[in-house]
Design a protein around this nucleic acid. Sequence first.
DNA 1: ATGAAAGCGCTAACAT
DNA 2: ATGTTAGCGCTTTCAT
Lengths: 323, 323
Amino acid sequence: MAVTIRDVAEASGVHVSTVSRAFSAPHLVNPETRTRVLAIAEDLGYRPNRAARALTTGRTHNIGLIVADIANPFFPPLIKAAQAQARLRDYHVFVADTDEDPQVEEDLIQTLTKQVDGVLLCSPRLTNRTIERLREEVPFVVVNRRAKGLPTVLMDVGRGARLAVEHLTALGHRRIALVTGPSGSWTSKEMQEAAATMSDVDVVFLGPNPPTELGGLAAATDVIASGATGVLAYNDLVAIGLIEGLAERGKNVPGDVSVIGVDDIVPGRLSRPKLTTIAMPTAAAGRIAVDLLLQSVDSAATAAATMLETALIVRESTGKAHR
Amino acid sequence: MAVTIRDVAEASGVHVSTVSRAFSAPHLVNPETRTRVLAIAEDLGYRPNRAARALTTGRTHNIGLIVADIANPFFPPLIKAAQAQARLRDYHVFVADTDEDPQVEEDLIQTLTKQVDGVLLCSPRLTNRTIERLREEVPFVVVNRRAKGLPTVLMDVGRGARLAVEHLTALGHRRIALVTGPSGSWTSKEMQEAAATMSDVDVVFLGPNPPTELGGLAAATDVIASGATGVLAYNDLVAIGLIEGLAERGKNVPGDVSVIGVDDIVPGRLSRPKLTTIAMPTAAAGRIAVDLLLQSVDSAATAAATMLETALIVRESTGKAHR
DNA sequence: ATGAAAGCGCTAACAT
DNA sequence: ATGTTAGCGCTTTCAT
């Protein structure tokens, strides 16, 4: 078995409680004793057992991070940042993938709850009602979805969409298609609302579509039929698929049609033409969400929504409108 | 506080140990009692505290998964698969990102070790010596790196490289450049060794290079200077960067030069031309690594190396050689 | 400043 | 088949 607090106590000739204090309440122990105990602990390679500690303190120093799909390029930067931030605060993170299944999501929360001090829900597929119920068991922070009464981290896609449409109109496009996402998506709704308020431009809504390349690919015919010369797609994957679909039908991007995506995922930077996109601050979202979570762990939860800025990144998939 | 085993015991009028048995040793308890206890537990919303259980059993039912960089597109499919497999076995997984820093990696292992039954090391940056030392503390399975004495999951890039070179020679290429990766990389070494044994073809080695787009971009001049018409790149990112670098210098892919990558990451499928590549079975690796780890948790570790097959995926970045 | 004792939630001998 | 007891590694009163 590994070295325990008792081993350290015996080796230093003090009681276990003194060793305990040497670590977690330094001011309560004689400085000399403390340094001696710490030295011996170091020597023996002692590391406190965090799980055992949690049993009495009620703090596991773990958090759960639940996402719909780890392999979706949108999430890894968020996971990475959340993990790094947690580590900074001396927290470990359980990462779990729900495979887009609400039932799995609920199960995961249930089994995780005893082992964590809080859970980060990223783009949850659960109903608000279920979340409402589960929050009794463990503190939540929700990312990328509006959940009233809960601390929330949102990214301002509404403003992003407006930026995108303005960019398009500035390039001379007068008819713009919004290729929407899944019907339940908060992001998609935000984009639609923002686009609907724009003047000086015709916006047609095409959707709902699956949030994937295939969704974009399939939307190409509708886009062409719509007569739009500028397109704002639900996300980068859809945009990339759309560009391919347009190419298959003889339409060049940005020559014939300009396309803008949302997210700024890696493949968008790497595909040709390089994708003009609305950058979502996923890393910042991960970092801030962790801080909010740890905050709401030891004080009352502030149920505020934090809105993060998005930015338009102009690359190669948008250009001047031609007559 | 949440509902504990004691609450269930009181509510069902039995002793806690009976409740415990109802869950973890069903055959030792009267079927009737068992169903009653289980019903009441369900009713109360009781979930055993796994951390507390671990204290006596020595099994945490957690594993650690340590990777160099979560955001590197190579890893997410592996993480996803590992996580899914772990869940299947009723295990939770801590995911940690070392940011390519060996020191962070060691720290992480140290602090994680008490909370997990084993650790999956993916493309570790630690020296073999350090790994050798740490294995005393916790069972390891190593992925994507040879570590003798430890259970290991490898992907057969050597064979992949041979397949790639054969594909190129079949297309008429007689002079092939191998754009290598970082000097310490096992994968890069394997590829070089495999390529060196090929006959009927000139292979020139260009490197070492950083394993990124930038690395590929920078390698373009050397590739052109080498006179090679076919290129095997260290990985897809390098291949994509290289294709861009070649384009900047007026060389078309696959018209003038054929390029093959390694990994089969998402951006490779999405970039233009679509990348011909050696597919690495990362999902399978994650799944198998988890099984090996859980296996070596409760029996003696089988220090064998498992070698997984790779496959050539021909897409658009390779074509006939021209004179 | 330190020791003694109780207890966190659970399992595992040992009794009965 | 079930209850009793001890104990996992640690923290936290309560004494001294």
